[in-house]
Computed example of a mutant assay.
Amino acid sequence: MNRTHRLVSAFGAGIVALSTLSGIAQTAPAPAPAAAPAAPQAIPAKIALIAFEQAVVATNEGQRSVLEVQKKYEPKKAQIEALGNEVESLKKQAAALPATTSEDERASRARVIDTKEKQLQRDADDATQAYNADLQEALGKVAQKVSGVMRDYCQKNGFTLLLDVGGQASNVLWANQSTDVSQAVVTAYNTTSGVTAPPPAAPAAAPRPRTAPAAPKK
Protein backbone atom coordinates (compact mmCIF):
# COMPACT_ATOMS: atom_id res chain seq x y z
CA MET A 1 0.00 0.00 0.00
CA ASN A 2 2.00 2.93 -1.33
CA ARG A 3 0.88 6.49 -0.93
CA THR A 4 2.38 9.60 -2.64
CA HIS A 5 3.01 12.38 -0.25
CA ARG A 6 3.61 15.82 -1.38
CA LEU A 7 5.44 18.61 0.46
CA VAL A 8 3.41 21.83 0.89
CA SER A 9 5.54 24.89 1.41
CA ALA A 10 4.06 28.17 2.82
CA PHE A 11 5.61 31.57 2.47
CA GLY A 12 4.63 34.37 4.83
CA ALA A 13 4.78 38.03 3.99
CA GLY A 14 6.12 40.49 6.54
CA ILE A 15 3.95 43.42 7.58
CA VAL A 16 5.58 46.53 8.95
CA ALA A 17 3.40 48.83 11.04
CA LEU A 18 4.17 52.55 11.04
CA SER A 19 3.34 54.57 14.17
CA THR A 20 1.59 57.94 13.82
CA LEU A 21 3.41 61.01 15.06
CA SER A 22 1.38 63.16 17.43
CA GLY A 23 1.73 65.72 20.17
CA ILE A 24 2.92 68.61 18.00
CA ALA A 25 2.15 71.87 19.78
CA GLN A 26 -0.34 74.10 18.07
CA THR A 27 2.07 77.00 18.43
CA ALA A 28 4.85 75.19 16.55
CA PRO A 29 5.60 76.59 13.12
CA ALA A 30 4.24 74.69 10.18
CA PRO A 31 6.83 72.33 8.67
CA ALA A 32 8.34 73.18 5.32
CA PRO A 33 6.75 71.30 2.43
CA ALA A 34 8.56 68.04 1.76
CA ALA A 35 10.40 67.67 -1.48
CA ALA A 36 8.58 65.64 -4.09
CA PRO A 37 9.85 62.04 -4.19
CA ALA A 38 11.93 61.13 -7.17
CA ALA A 39 9.97 59.39 -9.89
CA PRO A 40 10.74 55.65 -10.06
CA GLN A 41 12.83 54.68 -13.02
CA ALA A 42 11.77 51.79 -15.20
CA ILE A 43 14.34 49.04 -15.58
CA PRO A 44 14.34 46.16 -18.05
CA ALA A 45 12.49 43.16 -16.64
CA LYS A 46 14.42 39.94 -16.21
CA ILE A 47 12.11 37.18 -15.02
CA ALA A 48 13.14 33.78 -13.67
CA LEU A 49 11.11 30.70 -12.81
CA ILE A 50 11.70 28.08 -10.14
CA ALA A 51 9.91 24.94 -9.00
CA PHE A 52 10.77 25.63 -5.37
CA GLU A 53 9.44 22.52 -3.62
CA GLN A 54 11.00 20.22 -6.21
CA ALA A 55 14.28 22.12 -5.96
CA VAL A 56 14.38 21.68 -2.17
CA VAL A 57 13.92 17.92 -2.49
CA ALA A 58 16.45 17.76 -5.35
CA THR A 59 19.27 19.20 -3.25
CA ASN A 60 21.72 16.77 -1.69
CA GLU A 61 20.57 17.80 1.78
CA GLY A 62 16.94 17.45 0.79
CA GLN A 63 17.50 13.93 -0.53
CA ARG A 64 19.40 13.03 2.62
CA SER A 65 16.57 14.33 4.79
CA VAL A 66 13.99 12.25 2.90
CA LEU A 67 16.11 9.11 3.23
CA GLU A 68 16.60 9.69 6.97
CA VAL A 69 12.86 10.03 7.55
CA GLN A 70 12.15 6.96 5.43
CA LYS A 71 14.72 4.94 7.37
CA LYS A 72 13.16 6.04 10.65
CA TYR A 73 9.79 4.63 9.59
CA GLU A 74 11.03 1.38 8.03
CA PRO A 75 10.23 -0.69 11.18
CA LYS A 76 6.71 0.76 11.34
CA LYS A 77 6.22 0.13 7.63
CA ALA A 78 7.29 -3.50 8.05
CA GLN A 79 4.92 -3.87 11.00
CA ILE A 80 1.97 -2.51 9.02
CA GLU A 81 2.78 -4.71 6.03
CA ALA A 82 2.95 -7.77 8.30
CA LEU A 83 -0.44 -6.94 9.79
CA GLY A 84 -1.88 -6.42 6.31
CA ASN A 85 -0.57 -9.82 5.22
CA GLU A 86 -2.10 -11.38 8.32
CA VAL A 87 -5.49 -9.87 7.53
CA GLU A 88 -5.34 -11.15 3.96
CA SER A 89 -4.40 -14.61 5.19
CA LEU A 90 -7.31 -14.65 7.64
CA LYS A 91 -9.71 -13.65 4.88
CA LYS A 92 -8.50 -16.46 2.63
CA GLN A 93 -8.87 -18.93 5.46
CA ALA A 94 -12.41 -17.73 6.14
CA ALA A 95 -13.32 -17.98 2.47
CA ALA A 96 -11.99 -21.54 2.32
CA LEU A 97 -14.04 -22.82 5.27
CA PRO A 98 -16.02 -25.95 4.44
CA ALA A 99 -19.76 -25.73 4.13
CA THR A 100 -20.14 -27.65 7.37
CA THR A 101 -18.56 -24.85 9.42
CA SER A 102 -20.95 -23.56 12.08
CA GLU A 103 -22.30 -20.02 12.02
CA ASP A 104 -20.67 -19.32 15.38
CA GLU A 105 -17.26 -20.21 13.96
CA ARG A 106 -17.82 -18.03 10.90
CA ALA A 107 -18.98 -15.13 13.09
CA SER A 108 -15.98 -15.51 15.40
CA ARG A 109 -13.56 -15.40 12.48
CA ALA A 110 -15.36 -12.39 11.02
CA ARG A 111 -15.01 -10.51 14.31
CA VAL A 112 -11.28 -11.23 14.45
CA ILE A 113 -10.83 -10.01 10.87
CA ASP A 114 -12.85 -6.86 11.56
CA THR A 115 -10.81 -6.07 14.69
CA LYS A 116 -7.51 -6.51 12.89
CA GLU A 117 -8.67 -4.47 9.88
CA LYS A 118 -9.60 -1.57 12.14
CA GLN A 119 -6.23 -1.83 13.89
CA LEU A 120 -4.51 -1.86 10.50
CA GLN A 121 -6.35 1.29 9.43
CA ARG A 122 -5.52 3.10 12.68
CA ASP A 123 -1.87 2.11 12.53
CA ALA A 124 -1.59 3.16 8.89
CA ASP A 125 -3.29 6.52 9.51
CA ASP A 126 -1.15 7.27 12.57
CA ALA A 127 2.05 6.31 10.76
CA THR A 128 1.15 8.38 7.72
CA GLN A 129 0.39 11.45 9.84
CA ALA A 130 3.60 11.11 11.82
CA TYR A 131 5.65 10.48 8.67
CA ASN A 132 4.25 13.55 6.92
CA ALA A 133 4.89 15.73 9.97
CA ASP A 134 8.51 14.59 10.28
CA LEU A 135 9.10 14.95 6.54
CA GLN A 136 7.60 18.44 6.46
CA GLU A 137 9.72 19.51 9.42
CA ALA A 138 12.92 18.11 7.92
CA LEU A 139 12.37 19.63 4.47
CA GLY A 140 11.16 22.89 6.00
CA LYS A 141 14.58 23.42 7.56
CA VAL A 142 16.23 22.82 4.20
CA ALA A 143 13.74 25.11 2.45
CA GLN A 144 14.68 28.06 4.67
CA LYS A 145 18.33 27.74 3.67
CA VAL A 146 17.54 27.13 -0.01
CA SER A 147 15.41 30.29 0.00
CA GLY A 148 18.41 32.39 1.02
CA VAL A 149 20.63 30.91 -1.69
CA MET A 150 17.82 31.38 -4.21
CA ARG A 151 17.46 35.09 -3.44
CA ASP A 152 21.20 35.61 -3.52
CA TYR A 153 21.46 33.85 -6.88
CA CYS A 154 18.70 36.00 -8.41
CA GLN A 155 20.26 39.23 -7.13
CA LYS A 156 23.72 38.33 -8.42
CA ASN A 157 22.32 37.44 -11.83
CA GLY A 158 20.21 40.58 -12.19
CA PHE A 159 16.74 39.04 -12.08
CA THR A 160 13.95 41.48 -11.26
CA LEU A 161 11.17 38.94 -10.65
CA LEU A 162 11.09 35.29 -9.57
CA LEU A 163 7.97 33.15 -9.98
CA ASP A 164 7.35 29.81 -8.29
CA VAL A 165 5.86 27.42 -10.86
CA GLY A 166 6.19 24.24 -8.80
CA GLY A 167 2.69 24.18 -7.36
CA GLN A 168 -0.58 23.23 -9.01
CA ALA A 169 -1.92 26.74 -8.37
CA SER A 170 0.68 28.39 -10.64
CA ASN A 171 -0.79 30.86 -13.13
CA VAL A 172 2.11 30.49 -15.56
CA LEU A 173 0.73 28.67 -18.59
CA TRP A 174 3.89 28.72 -20.68
CA ALA A 175 7.45 29.94 -20.34
CA ASN A 176 10.76 29.56 -22.11
CA GLN A 177 12.67 26.79 -20.36
CA SER A 178 15.83 28.90 -20.37
CA THR A 179 14.23 31.08 -17.67
CA ASP A 180 13.96 28.13 -15.24
CA VAL A 181 16.70 28.52 -12.60
CA SER A 182 15.68 25.50 -10.49
CA GLN A 183 18.73 23.40 -11.32
CA ALA A 184 21.06 26.39 -11.05
CA VAL A 185 19.78 27.11 -7.54
CA VAL A 186 20.11 23.43 -6.60
CA THR A 187 23.72 23.42 -7.82
CA ALA A 188 24.49 26.65 -5.98
CA TYR A 189 23.00 25.29 -2.77
CA ASN A 190 24.87 22.00 -3.01
CA THR A 191 28.09 23.97 -3.39
CA THR A 192 27.47 26.20 -0.39
CA SER A 193 26.04 23.47 1.88
CA GLY A 194 28.91 21.06 1.34
CA VAL A 195 26.52 18.10 1.64
CA THR A 196 27.46 15.28 -0.70
CA ALA A 197 24.90 13.40 -2.73
CA PRO A 198 23.52 10.29 -1.02
CA PRO A 199 24.65 6.99 -2.50
CA PRO A 200 22.33 5.55 -5.14
CA ALA A 201 19.92 2.89 -4.01
CA ALA A 202 20.97 -0.64 -4.76
CA PRO A 203 19.16 -1.99 -7.84
CA ALA A 204 16.60 -4.68 -7.24
CA ALA A 205 17.77 -8.17 -8.02
CA ALA A 206 16.71 -9.25 -11.48
CA PRO A 207 14.52 -12.36 -11.63
CA ARG A 208 16.39 -15.47 -12.62
CA PRO A 209 15.55 -16.56 -16.17
CA ARG A 210 13.62 -19.73 -16.46
CA THR A 211 15.40 -22.64 -18.07
CA ALA A 212 13.65 -23.85 -21.14
CA PRO A 213 12.52 -27.45 -20.84
CA ALA A 214 14.56 -29.94 -22.76
CA ALA A 215 13.11 -31.10 -26.03
CA PRO A 216 11.69 -34.61 -25.81
CA LYS A 217 13.83 -37.29 -27.35
CA LYS A 218 12.47 -38.86 -30.45
Results as ranks from 00 to 15, higher is better:
A30E: 11
Q93S: 01
R210I: 07
E68L: 15
L83V: 04
N60H: 08
P44E: 14
V165W: 03
S65C: 15
V8L: 04
D114L: 12
K76A: 14
P203D: 06
L83G: 01
G148W: 15
Q41R: 11
P29C: 05
Q63R: 15
T4P: 09
A35S: 02
E105N: 05
A55Y: 07
S170R: 00
T187N: 09
V181H: 01
F11G: 01
V186M: 05
H5Y: 13
G194A: 04
I80N: 06
A138T: 05
T187H: 06
V69A: 08
Y73T: 00
Q79Y: 07
T160L: 04
L162G: 01
I15R: 01
I80M: 00
G23I: 05
T115P: 02
P37F: 03
S65V: 15
I47P: 01
P98S: 11
V181S: 00
S108Y: 12
S19M: 02
A205H: 04
P216E: 09
T101W: 10
A130C: 06
A55R: 07
G140Y: 03
F11L: 04
W174R: 14
A130S: 09
T115W: 01
E105L: 03
A55F: 08
S182C: 01
H5F: 14
K91H: 09
R64K: 14
G166M: 02
L21A: 03
K218T: 12
R208L: 11
V142A: 08
A201T: 12
L18D: 00
A201M: 08
A99D: 09
A30T: 12
A110M: 09
G84D: 12
N176Y: 04
N2S: 10
P209D: 10
I15V: 03
T27W: 02
G14N: 00
E81S: 14
R210S: 09
I43R: 13
K156Y: 02
P40V: 04
G194L: 07
V181N: 00
A188D: 02
A48M: 02
L83R: 07
Y153S: 11
A214T: 15
L120M: 02
A10E: 01
G62R: 10
A39Q: 10
L18R: 06
D114G: 11
Q54R: 13
S147F: 02
V142M: 09
D125M: 10
V87G: 03
L161S: 10
S178Q: 06
P198N: 07
K71W: 14
T192W: 10
H5W: 13
V195T: 11
P29Q: 15
E68V: 15
I80Y: 03
T115Y: 00
G84H: 01
A94I: 01
T100I: 12
A36I: 09
L163R: 08
A107E: 02
A34T: 03
R151H: 07
S65M: 15
V56I: 15
K72D: 12
A201D: 07
T100R: 11
